[in-house]
Simulated scan of single mutants.
Amino acid sequence: MNWKKTKTLLIFVFILVNIMLVFTYIDKVKKSNINDIGKENAVNFHQEGIEIPDKLPSVKNVKMQLVTARSFDFTNFAKSHSDVTRTKSGEAAKGNLSDEIDVGNDQYSDLKSYIQKNVYKGDDYELSKIDDNEVTFEQTYNNYPIMDNVKARLKFKVDSDGKTSSYTQTAMKSIKPSNGANNDKKQVNSAKKAIEQLYFNRYLKRNDEVRNARLGYYTVVEEPNVQVLQANWEIKVNHKGKITTYYVEAASNNPKINKKD
């Protein structure tokens, strides 16, 4: 046995083992730093004195993309429905109910039934807002609302006795993914991340309360008859008794924020 060669081989193996250990250690340090950065970026809202909902909508495996839509012309629909008239441009319809519907005491089952049977594409609308003199529904696409859009809305006027007998409607048609090579579906960021963006951009202050967050489509480009809609989080914030609505891009690493007072 050549002891000198064996000794040299053992030293070489020892050096290789040490090199592997060094690289393993560096890799662990890098992963640890990444985890630490993630923890640092996560906002402790309770510690910051900001209240957010205990339960936020889940977006696991939810992917969305830009879509385009056109305004619907109610001219032909009005011709075939005696209780519906259209506006001069045809982009809105006014309907009269043959029998009043009682919407007092939060009873909306009869109203929803009427919408499904009598309103143009009634199944595509969902309840959005309730006021003393108005009940508002929003049009949806793929089960997500088209938010804050006067061209995709259904409103019922409520009289002082809590009954409604008329409505106005606008609608979008030909809703489909926008053309373009860079319009692949993207994973939607969580509602909490969207709320954190408000905090990082100083829209959220101590003692603020985030009332709710919902995912939907928000108009980013608007032409006379065509709109481009993008996935956004709608977040309502109570600041000193005043409610402010924010729209945060939902599938962007550097989301744009729109503020609506």
Rank of each mutant, 00 (worst) to 15 (best):
T170V: 06
I11D: 11
Y217R: 02
N232D: 07
Y199M: 08
N105E: 07
A92H: 12
P53M: 02
R153K: 15
N258E: 12
Y246A: 13
L111W: 04
S113L: 03
K163M: 09
N18D: 05
Q107V: 01
K5D: 13
K186A: 07
G104P: 00
G49T: 08
Q169E: 14
N61K: 10
A69C: 13
Y203A: 00
K55H: 08
T136G: 07
K256T: 14
K7M: 12
K236I: 01
K240H: 11
H46C: 00
K31E: 07
K163C: 08
T24R: 05
K205G: 02
N133F: 01
K155N: 15
S32F: 01
A152N: 06
D27I: 06
K163E: 10
Q47S: 15
R153F: 09
V13A: 14
Q230A: 03
A93C: 10
I235V: 11
D124I: 12
K63S: 13
N258W: 13
L97P: 00
T219Y: 00
Q187H: 03
S190C: 00
T24N: 11
V135I: 14
D131Y: 03
N238G: 06
D131R: 10
K55M: 08
A231T: 02
V62S: 00
F14E: 13
L111V: 02
K151N: 14
Y144R: 15
Y25R: 09
P57D: 03
N189R: 09
G95H: 01
K155I: 15
V248S: 04
K173P: 13
E209P: 01
